Amino acid sequence: MRLAALDIGSNSAQLQVVDVYSGAPPLPAHAVKEPTLLGEELQPDGSLSEEGAQRAAKAVRQAVDAAGRLGVDQLYPFVTAAIRDATNSAEVLELIEAESGIRPQHLSGEQEAHLTYFAAHRWYGWSAGRLLLMDIGGGSMELVLGRDVEPELAVSLPLGAGRLTRAFCASDPPRAKEIKAIRRHVRETLSEVVDRLRWEGTPRRVVATSKTFKQLARLAGAAPQRKGPFVHRELTLAALREQIPRLIKASAKDRSKLPGISRSRARQVVAGALVAEATMGALDLRSVEICPWALREGILLRHLEAMSVNPELPLQALTRNNAPVRPLPAAVS
């Protein structure tokens, strides 16, 4: 069976296709990325502009077309904070459905945290012990702590790299007062959960997922993605602090020329780096290990687990809500 997850985020719509074999891990068979750049289209009232909604709908249609060409049997499309939190999210989803023939689910921040943790726990296995996971997205940051398949603590904070860039960084490069404002805001927001995480005790393993952490690790000298998922990658707090002044001084255009920094994320990587630094510092973490599996893998793994128990289980059971997942159009299914 060929499964795929379609992640419609603030920077792109990413289709990840896996071939399912008994006893084998769901490693990617194909990946397709279509730009959305929704962070540039958020209006003062919290809505996405018509141009942004149209861009998202076009990206989803192209991804769905790709899924058809690649012979995908089941597709799970979902949106994260960029569309979920928009004041006109219902209208955007309707436009996407009209354009592509599918209606994506929306995942809450807590659902994202649980699914990402589930993927990381599967990647490292039971020997990982107590696991602390950090994930910095465009709209939110997830912190998850646990030992078993289900986490003990999962929180989602409004500390996404794109969200903070829009809220605080009007200048390019950012001004000193903008950087100061981000740092103050991040500290204040983290204070809500840091004491709880400290109280829970020291984790045996600390891991980070998301494109933000992967790019920061690459900038600090980790192996490029083309080396594959089994290469050990980590980001130390010391290396991150060495790179932050370099990121702050550069324009977005110049940042996009740095190792690992993509053009679409070059503007928001400063905010992402500041969130990573503040979180690692607050929790006394010298380093984090970069986990290659994250939200998309978590969704696919949950589906595979559910199918092993009940092969007829509908796909929407994974979302734990009542919104239906539309089947693929006839040309795709």
Rank of each mutant, 00 (worst) to 15 (best):
L304M: 13
G221E: 09
R196E: 13
S262W: 00
T189E: 11
A223W: 05
E188P: 09
V206N: 10
V193A: 06
A222L: 01
L216P: 09
R204G: 13
R205V: 12
S308Y: 00
K249G: 06
S251P: 07
T279F: 00
D195K: 04
P245S: 05
G201D: 10
R233Y: 02
L318M: 14
E192N: 06
A273M: 03
K253Q: 15
S308Q: 11
A317W: 14
R265I: 15
R263N: 03
Q268H: 11
L235I: 10
R187I: 05
A271V: 14
R187K: 14
R302N: 08
E289F: 00
I179K: 00
E234V: 10
I182H: 08
T319R: 00
R267I: 02
R286N: 12
E289N: 02
T189I: 04
A238V: 12
D254P: 02
N321V: 02
L197S: 11
R246Q: 14
G201S: 04
V206E: 06
A271Y: 05
H303G: 08
E305Y: 02
Q316S: 12
R246W: 01
I182N: 13
P229I: 07
R320L: 07
L313F: 01
P292F: 01
V207G: 03
F230G: 00
R265H: 06
V193W: 02
E277C: 02
W199C: 10
S210W: 02
M280I: 06
L235M: 08
S262P: 08
A282M: 07
I261E: 15
L301T: 09
A306K: 15
I248W: 09
L315T: 07
K257G: 11
N322I: 10
H185N: 11
H185R: 13
A282D: 11
P203I: 08
D254G: 00
M307I: 13
A250C: 09
H232D: 15
I261G: 09
V194H: 04
A282V: 12
R233M: 05
R226N: 12
S191F: 01
L318R: 12
T209S: 05
G298W: 01
R265W: 02
I299E: 05
G221F: 03
Q225G: 10
A306V: 14
D254E: 13
H185G: 05
A271T: 15
A220V: 07
Q225S: 12
P259R: 04
I248D: 15
P324V: 01
A323N: 14
G201Q: 03
G260V: 06
L240Y: 03
H232E: 15
L197W: 04
I182A: 12
W199G: 05
L318H: 13
L295T: 13
A266I: 03
V309E: 15
L285V: 08
S210Q: 06
A306M: 15
L235R: 06
S210P: 11
R226I: 11
P324Y: 03
R184M: 10
A250Y: 04
F213G: 07
K211T: 14
C291L: 07
A278L: 00
R255I: 03
I261Y: 02
L258S: 04
K214C: 10
V288T: 07
R205T: 14
E277P: 04
I179S: 03
G260W: 00
I290V: 10
L247P: 07
E312Q: 14
K253W: 06
A278S: 11
Q225T: 11
K227R: 13
I248N: 12
K214D: 15
L240R: 04
